[in-house]
Design a protein around this nucleic acid. Sequence first.
DNA 1: TGCAATGCTTGACCGGGATCAAGGGGCAAT
DNA 2: ATTGCCCCTTGATCCCGGTCAAGCATTGCA
Lengths: 246, 246
Amino acid sequence: MTEPALATATRLRTACSQCTLRELCLPVGLSAEELRSLDDLVSTRRKIRRGDSLFYGGEPFTALYAVRYGFFKSTLTSGDGREQVTGFYMAGELLGMDGIGGDRHTCTLTALEDSEVCVMPFARVEDLSRTFEPLQRHFHKVLSREIVRDQGVMMLLGSMRAEERLAAFLVNLSQRLTTRGFSASEFVLRMTRDEIGSYLGMKLETVSRLFSRFQEDGLIEVHQKHVRIIEIGGLKRVMAQAQSGS
Amino acid sequence: MTEPALATATRLRTACSQCTLRELCLPVGLSAEELRSLDDLVSTRRKIRRGDSLFYGGEPFTALYAVRYGFFKSTLTSGDGREQVTGFYMAGELLGMDGIGGDRHTCTLTALEDSEVCVMPFARVEDLSRTFEPLQRHFHKVLSREIVRDQGVMMLLGSMRAEERLAAFLVNLSQRLTTRGFSASEFVLRMTRDEIGSYLGMKLETVSRLFSRFQEDGLIEVHQKHVRIIEIGGLKRVMAQAQSGS
DNA sequence: TGCAATGCTTGACCGGGATCAAGGGGCAAT
DNA sequence: ATTGCCCCTTGATCCCGGTCAAGCATTGCA
């Protein structure tokens, strides 16, 4: 039986081997053939409109997702309804790893702009990584890096002052955008002050005031969601001024 | 060639299949034979004296460790020397997962009492989990649960007030001790006020004051490191009194 | 094109928790 | 049993960042 033309087209559209983002979400240094063996990883793609959610906390876990384009936040809701932003995700980053442990997602993933993800059924990820060692290794690294990232945020929240936290946030954002070929110094925030504040453990008013202060100090220029970093070195200095906070 | 008696003895001593903790750190529901196939996981054991470190941040990553007995803290040191406690670990819990992503450890693991760990060379973990599906699945779950745990701490630090955080800490400790067959209501803290404070993002004085306050309120009884929980329901109520903090 | 909704900024004030300081208790080593 | 060190407790004071409030800017929809 020959493959129908439509299936071929779909396959091509979802092929990891053709994806410009692959060095962000897949192991590097593979031969063309090895790469092709990864094309089975992605079953389909899914578009998420701004404001819609990819999955909700409590929902059964079935797949991991790689961001193709767009921007997401992950949120955790506590028993009493408080909402905490636990992360922001952009192209090439992996979503849904929280769900593996308990077979349901613990957090909610919401698109902050129109986005698209590659759907990777988790059973397939596990199957493939049993037979394909580079994938196994890579997958473990991705999981581990998520742990390290979270611990970095713990350090942020646990031992830094508000202005240090916001500076660190901007520096981090700038670095991640650079990796993806965007400008390091000028970008549009996809999230609100409230979401930044939740992520960084401060109120939206504090975020706003600090943006204004950084601007007065000549470190950045802000107009609503538009941010231009003028002196990244200054931000890094703010980040690390050895004092204890909270 | 027969196996020398000493090797046999070592093997017996390190056999997962014989370990009373195995339901805490290995997949459950395995046959005796399947269990035996896991005995290769642990290469050796290692004792760590109180105050000594199992590994340091920056050190090359080679193995994961399962706590056999004892108590550990993990700490992260920032560029400017500030130290953040990122977790406490007890029997049956897995250490070292932070190292997988970058081939070196990012945090330091220090014993808070005389302890022993099982050393599981990571190459062996990956090999075995390629051929033995239940181990693969289990390992992924453990990694994922660490992510979820860290996100829980982020929520703690990002959106709860000091007294809520400390109450949550006590409730969590009590639960983990119960799982391990210890008393849920009476235990000895292995860490100092300073370490608790670092973990929870507050100063040691605040920890001390809150302990005193909880005692006045009849929720607990504290004498130095000795804690007796009198009303766990009260602690849970403190934990969730819907207000915003920090 | 105008209106409503949402998000941002800024000011005034307040309070939780940090900081500074002093003293007390327990444990380990001898 | 004594000594010294580390840890814990408690008080007094201060300040960062939260809270409350008012008004402005931007965006999306009718």
